[in-house]
Design a protein around this nucleic acid. Structure first.
Lengths: 362, 362
DNA sequence: CTGAAAGCGCTTACAG
DNA sequence: CTGAAAGCGCTTACAG
């Protein structure tokens, strides 16, 4: 072939592979139609005659054209991206949710923009500003510390999906997990095994999840007709370190307990280490139950009984709700009910189930 | 004040809070200068007289102006965003690196765009396309399966920083951790404790990290004058499940060993569960050493001796290198040397250090 | 030192 | 059904 036949002498090499140089205009020229028509075909905005459509499709394929989302964002006001405010990009808890969001959004042609809120309202507010300045089409907020009213306010500007709270506001959809029921289930499990002295490590009680889980624990005890022992409830903050500290505090306080329910798996892991250090065996000496059912629960020693928190589904649903909001629909999605995954860390108390036994040192 | 003095009658409410509606043009008008001047001040592109600068600063503050990165990207060709190809957004291993990248990039005004490559070259290639179509200014690739030549090729189009390999190419900077030395150190530690039968669980051997760690293990044995026992080397793939399977395989094969070195912590966790299931205690019966020093290593039972892999720093350095590449500089950064963190999972072998002991069932 | 103007690659009323 | 044209909010040669 003769290369003088092509007009691009000093042009960069023709586009192939995404991000190439082909533009809408080039496609339009190649197909012999206007740019507007190509745009309409791409967006399904209007009915176009079959032959033009075929010509355009062919041109797109031949040029390896990939629309430029940046230009799209400027012109159309939509960027096909949604911001995701997580608390820490490397959180073992939210990780699964991020994956669910990424998968679901990706299928719809949207990209997630992940930012870390670092568990402070000020930081989260800054994240939301940054996201808005990037012109995201909507924002998914995973829990966080922002006030309901702040969230509702920004929902007036662009669609918001928020997890971990119960909240109704225009332009906003809230997705909540039944933490109360989960904690109730876990406590009930221990009660059914015969435990009567069940220690509880709280989460951060400023956090709705923390509050609800404590409530669930108490409700189960009450339903069983047991009196609450304040000495068995020790404060934690959802970190491994606080679970470890809680166990040491409990043991040192001398209050007998045959089971321990931690408000999340991370604290349960910390608690397990604390028990190990004090030579108490799980589950022979103390039954241990966590909450969240992290991936690591399966490989903890012994494998941890835990309330399954469907984080991946949470991410999927949050993304789906966002897509619906973006499409002008009203989401009606809901999370599955909590269920307990029983593994090897819980069993009936050693001696007489009714007779509490003080952990002893060996 | 009389509101007829302002021209915006039906306009949306004035911008306040990021992402507001103020535009460059509005700032220019308010400050009595041209848009070009405002742009120059914002970008530090040219020297501007003090009084104009003051007027502009004031107008920006008053209007709560936030530049629109989308428009910026279209006009200037830069989006102030860099793509990050990780393998799984919720990887316990890469999580720290993502945080390092986010922190470092954020300080420089850049935003990361995280995408998951799912450990396949095809997927990663698609990620890179998607990222390029989003017009990122550069791409950081965390390990991955892409061929060196594919990476070098895309580095001709935009700056690339890649971790986990040794590679030189124009527009590309590679950041590698000394996996060989790390594995050598870990094995040496076990040898110094007196172990002579050290089992090894490999990582994915198609992966450079996997290969290097095996090499380090072998080098240490050789340096100690020990003959290699092929039966002690069992294949794994970096997952917990493969660590568990490896231990079962090892025990069932009847080959005696007093220590086990897994090519990463996740496999060490799996191995720990396998030992627990077979009633073998760590470290009394078997010493266990991992690699990577994940956050979870501190809370595993017993706390795991592991080669520290500075992932957060890795992320920071990768981002820093990208920033330098973007500024037209040639990075010369390097990762810290590996070091071993000794915890409670390793100790001298039970009996005579020189006499191998077959794990027994109890 | 500073403006006017063109242009980045698309979308979207507005008119056929 | 389809074009021509304006415009999204910036940046950047090009001229003073």
């Amino acid at each position: 072939m003769n290369d003088s036949s092509t007009g691009r002498r000093r042009g960069r090499k023709p586009a192939e592979g995404g991000g190439g140089k082909a533009t809408l205009e080039m496609v339009a020229a190649a197909a012999g139609v206007s740019a507007a028509t190509v745009s309409r075909i791409l967006n399904g905005t209007a009915i176009v005659s079959d032959d033009k459509r075929a010509a355009v499709d062919e041109a797109i394929a031949r040029l390896g054209y990939v629309p430029n989302p940046v230009a799209r964002g400027l012109a159309g006001g939509r960027t096909l991206s949604v911001g995701v405010v997580t608390q820490a990009i490397d959180s073992p808890f939210y990780g699964g949710a991020l994956r669910g969001i990424e998968d679901t959004l990706g299928q719809a042609g949207y990209s997630p923009l992940f930012v870390s809120g670092h568990w402070t309202a000020a930081h989260e507010a800054r994240c939301i500003e940054a996201l808005r300045s990037r012109r995201v089409d909507g924002i998914i907020v995973l829990t966080g510390r922002l006030s309901d009213s702040a969230l509702a306010a920004t929902a007036r500007e662009l669609p918001i999906v928020v997890t971990g709270r119960r909240l109704k506001a225009p332009g906003l959809y809230a997705l909540d997990f039944d933490n109360f029921e989960g904690a109730r289930l876990a406590t009930e499990h221990l009660l059914e095994l015969g435990h009567r002295h069940i220690a509880f490590v709280t989460g951060d009680l400023k956090h709705p999840d923390g509050k609800e889980r404590l409530r669930g624990y108490r409700a189960a005890l009450e339903a069983a007709g047991l009196k609450q022992e304040p000495a068995l409830v020790t404060p934690g903050d959802f970190t491994e370190a606080s679970g470890l500290a809680a166990v040491e505090w409990l043991i040192d306080s001398g209050t007998p307990f045959s089971a321990l329910f931690a408000s999340n798996d991370q604290m349960a892991f910390g608690a397990a280490l604390g028990l190990y250090r004090r030579q108490l065996h799980v589950p022979e000496d103390v039954s241990l139950v966590g909450f969240d059912d992290l991936a690591a629960a399966v490989y903890s020693i012994p494998p941890l009984t835990s309330v399954h928190h469907p984080v991946y589904e949470l991410g999927q649903l949050a993304a789906r709700a966002m897509l619906q909001l973006l499409a002008g629909e009203q989401p009606t999605l809901d999370l599955p009910a909590p269920r307990l995954v029983v593994r090897e860390s819980s069993q009936p108390p050693r001696r007489n189930p009714a007779a509490p036994r003080a952990p002893r040192r060996r």
